[in-house]
Design a protein around this nucleic acid. Structure first.
Length: 832
RNA sequence: GCCGGCGUGGCGGAACGGUAUACGCGGCGGUCUCAAAAACCGCUCCUCUCACGGGGUUAAGGGUUCGAAUCCCUUCGCCGGCACCA
């Protein structure tokens, strides 16, 4: 009989269709088994699924299938993050409506996603650009509005002149637009912001989360909590600038992390955009100040921030002075672009002796440098001889009443002093800023706000949601949302007074859509609510979330903020959305470089799937290296993995063909096969648990190698029931990783049910140990011999055998035994 | 500059502080074949030796330990994040 060949194309589509029909992947709300919410970051419908999606989703699907076989009610949804800029760019470029483009891409990608053979629950599919979804995005926005967590203000926006839109700080990379690379400018526009800073402190707490250390660190640094003090300096307003009846001075607060250096302040610097700059500029300095302010305005703040550290300090004195509230000294006020308006108070106290930036500034402008902190026993030297600032903490000197205060107490003492004298207080500052969510764009969820001449910004009543996006718009590069030119959209009436009013024409950042989609999956078709409390309580939090590390400081932070805020509104009873987080690595091109069309090193999933089958691609991707590491694609590597699946096919079909008398023999090789089976279950199970798919597959390869070896010279083994058990175990272990071939072979071994409905195989720990073990014998840490001994050998026996070894004797070379170390079952070290 | 991570055969990568190089790729040799492909079997870190054996090796150098790829320190290289954050 001609042996059948492994030809995945012959059965993969069949099983995909059958799984879809069976509805096995649909998670039921009333399933009594423990739930497991297995989530992947949903794709943006860019047009085609790329190999990175395959990588991400294969790993996630393996884990989900594994958990399902272990008895969990797994919910594994999929959907599309469908609003966003590329659709609009395509619209402009190809004169096609964003909606048309997006929906066509979704249809294509749905087919591509099916080819993966993943156990998606399509009944829960969520598409964020459809009104039945964005209605609730708008509703969520209104809840934030109601609770004062979103607000509108004229704010400096990161403006990309090419995309004609504002960008979130997170979307600005090195001062340039993340998408098109254009240098970002600043513009003052009325914008909507989300008050994420209110949750800064809570977001620093990761208790109970199984998240990569790296991601927690990135978020922690992004939030950037600094402890210190706010200190209020008092500036004298130049006589010429005072209006009649106006006070002669104005308060200038600063934030500092080093209140202990307060006596070292020798100058004071404002950001050039600081609102008091003009008022504090003397007539003599006016021209110089104005031209400096204009110069810095031309360079965006982002540009200044991205400038190299070595960049020379620039600045101009205002001509006026502030009083140091602690020392009483009068010090000159400057403006300089190294001070950022967006952090702290937009002002710093210059302590050149103990801050490197201030040091450089003082050197550039010949400002005095006063040492006020002594570093240990280091003798005081003339700061004029220093090469750099001395930022270390230490005992205070030259600090009036604080002289001699030790470093660990200095900060506390100064804060106590300023609080007592009412000139400041201990305070905390964050690098994190509020999240700007307005986009001057069409393809996003409309912001459900109406502007009325009398009532100002009025939220759209919830029963009037959704505020529908028009099907079509005209795309002109005006810098304003195309919605402004759709009169039917723009013109409306005030929900309060009914007078003519206009709608907000900006749309929401797409990150808003993805900040709550994992809640909607729990209740995707609810027409009355964004989600049903009970369903969300059942499914949330997400037990496993797999996606790329590039979302560490954006999506993953926003989603946490949303959940906390919604909890405080009484809409959720959880504090964190994602209990366990895992970042898959990146698949690189065969040249080891990031895949890109310009490099011509892109591997298209469709091509390789046609050639090797979905299982071949899945298995190869997972075998490439550790899942969180990724690695370069190798065309010969996938051949090897494909050959393995071929060997599985041959092994199982041979077994099926020899079906005469299954279980009728007691082969001498049966015991070893059974032992190998238990060992393999043990290691593969533990590898799957830890998402170590590469070693899990290596384990299954060794299993197949071992079974083939065992059959050599044991013709009756194939009829031994223990061999049959090994074959079935192999298929169940393989099922999560290569679901189609496992299912096909499972059915060929005579099963009418699905391999994916089997419960996960168990093992007996006693069966994972050999009768005879190999003990390595070292002399002084060097391997000199190995011994085969019964598994239950005692230490005394091992010692006896080891010392009897001729090789050990030779290695000892007459030295006396000083020490004997025994690692049970493994190794003995003779020290002499 | 600061904060993380990583450096293991020709290649991708394995190794609870305990036989470094599992598994796979590639290479070499063989079986089958008229031949090739496929499939299967064997060998394959470096070095000395005919061999038996010995020595060396986890970026480099040092340390801790009976024993280090693994822990600690220094240096170099690569990757990621932040980047004048007061």
């Amino acid at each position: 009989m001609a042996r059948s060949k492994y030809q995945p194309a012959e059965f993969e589509p069949k099983w995909q269709a059958r799984w879809a029909e069976s509805g096995d992947a649909m998670a039921r709300d009333d399933d009594p088994r423990p739930k497991f919410y297995n989530l992947v970051m949903f794709p943006y419908p860019s047009g085609d699924l790329h190999i990175g999606h395959w990588y991400n989703y294969t790993g996630a699907d393996i884990f989900g299938r594994f958990m399902r076989m272990r008895g969990y009610n797994v919910m594994q949804p999929i959907g599309f993050d469908a609003f966003g800029l590329p659709a609009e760019n395509a619209a402009i470029k190809r004169n096609i409506q964003p909606r048309t483009w997006t929906l066509a891409n979704i249809a294509n990608m749905q087919q591509q996603l099916r080819r993966l053979g993943a156990a998606w629950d399509w009944s829960r599919e969520v598409i964020t650009c459809l009104p039945d979804y964005y209605q609730w995005t708008q509703w969520v926005f209104l809840q934030f509005y109601k609770h004062g967590l979103t607000y509108r203000t004229k704010a400096p926006a990161n403006w990309c002149p090419t995309c004609n839109t504002t960008l979130a700080n997170e979307q600005v990379v090195n001062g340039a637009c993340e998408r098109c690379g254009t240098t970002v400018e600043r513009r003052e526009i009325d914008q909507w912001l989300m008050r994420i800073t209110k949750y800064a402190d809570e977001l620093l707490n990761f208790d109970g989360l199984e998240w990569p250390e790296k991601t927690r660190l990135m978020q922690t640094n992004w939030i950037g909590r600094s402890e210190g003090a706010e200190i209020r300096f008092t500036a004298s307003i130049p006589k010429e600038n005072r209006k009649r009846g106006q006070k002669a001075s104005v308060e200038l607060p600063v934030f500092t992390t080093r209140p202990d250096t307060i006596y070292g302040v020798t100058f004071f610097v404002l950001a050039p955009e600081h609102p008091l700059v003009e008022q504090l500029t003397t007539p003599e300095q006016r021209d110089a100040v104005q031209s400096y302010v204009e110069q810095t305005r031309r360079e965006s703040e982002i540009e200044r921030m991205s400038a190299e550290k070595s960049r020379a300090k620039t600045g101009v004195p205002l001509g006026s002075y502030v009083k140091n509230p602690v020392s009483g000294e009068q010090i000159p006020i400057w403006i300089a672009d190294y001070v950022l308006m967006s952090y702290g108070k937009g002002a710093v106290m210059g302590v050149p002796a103990h801050d490197q930036r201030d040091f450089e500034f003082a050197r550039a402008f010949d400002l005095p440098i006063t040492q006020v902190v002594q570093n240990g026993d280091e003798p005081l030297t003339d700061p004029a001889t220093w090469d750099e600032a001395k930022p270390a903490h230490g005992r205070l000197v030259n600090s009036g009443p604080f002289d001699g205060v030790p470093g660990d107490e200095a900060t506390k003492r100064v804060i106590a002093w300023i609080e007592e004298h009412g000139v400041g207080a201990g305070s905390v500052n964050y690098r994190l800023r509020d999240w700007l969510v307005s986009r001057q764009r069409f393809w996003g969820s409309p912001i459900p706000i109406v502007y009325c001449e009398e009532h100002g910004a009025v939220p759209v009543p919830e029963d009037q949601l959704p505020v529908r996006l028009p099907d079509e718009a005209e795309f002109r590069p005006t810098g304003e949302s195309p919605l402004r030119y759709v009169p039917e959209f723009l013109n409306t009436t005030c929900p309060i007074c009914g007078a003519p009013a206009t709608r907000e024409t900006d749309t929401l950042d797409t990150f808003l859509c993805s900040s709550w989609y994992f809640l909607r999956y729990a209740d995707p078709h609810d027409e009355e609510h964004a989600w049903d409390e009970k369903k969300v309580a059942k499914w949330l939090p997400v037990d496993m979330y797999i996606g790329g590390p590039e979302h560490a400081t954006m999506h993953l932070l926003y989603a946490r903020f949303f959940v906390k805020a919604l909890r405080d509104m009484g809409l959720l009873n959880i504090s964190e959305p994602f209990t366990r987080l895992y970042h898959q690595g990146m698949v690189l091109g065969p040249d080891g470089q990031k895949m890109s069309k310009s490099r011509g090193n892109v591997i298209a999933p469709d091509d390789v799937v046609t050639r090797y089958g979905a299982d071949g691609v899945r298995a190869y991707l997972m075998f490439m290296g550790p899942f969180d590491q990724g690695g370069p694609w190798n065309n010969q590597g996938i051949e090897g993995v494909s050959r393995y699946l071929n060997r599985v096919w041959t092994l199982v079909t041979d077994y099926v063909e020899a079906s005469e008398g299954h279980g009728s023999a007691q082969s001498s090789a049966g015991r070893e096969v059974e032992r190998l089976r238990h060992k393999t279950i043990a290691r593969v199970t533990s590898d799957y648990e830890g998402l170590r798919f590469n070693t899990a597959l290596a384990g299954m390869m060794e299993f197949v190698n071992g079974l083939n070896k065992a059959r050599e010279g044991a013709d009756d083994l194939i009829r031994d029931a223990r061999y049959g058990a090994a074959v079935e175990t192999l298929l169940t272990l393989l099922a999560p990783l290569a679901p189609h071939i496992a299912e096909e072979l499972w059915s060929r071994t005579g099963h009418s049910d699905s391999v994916h409905q089997q419960s996960w195989p168990t093992f007996d720990p006693a069966m994972t140990v050999d009768d005879v073990i190999t003990i390595v014998v070292q002399v002084n840490g060097k391997v000199r011999d190995t011994m085969q001994l019964p598994a239950d050998v005692t230490e005394a026996q091992v010692r006896e055998h080891a010392l009897a070894s001729a090789k050990v004797g030779a290695a000892l070379d007459g030295r006396e035994l000083r020490k004997f170390i025994y690692v049970p079952g493994k190794l003995a070290n003779v020290v002499g």
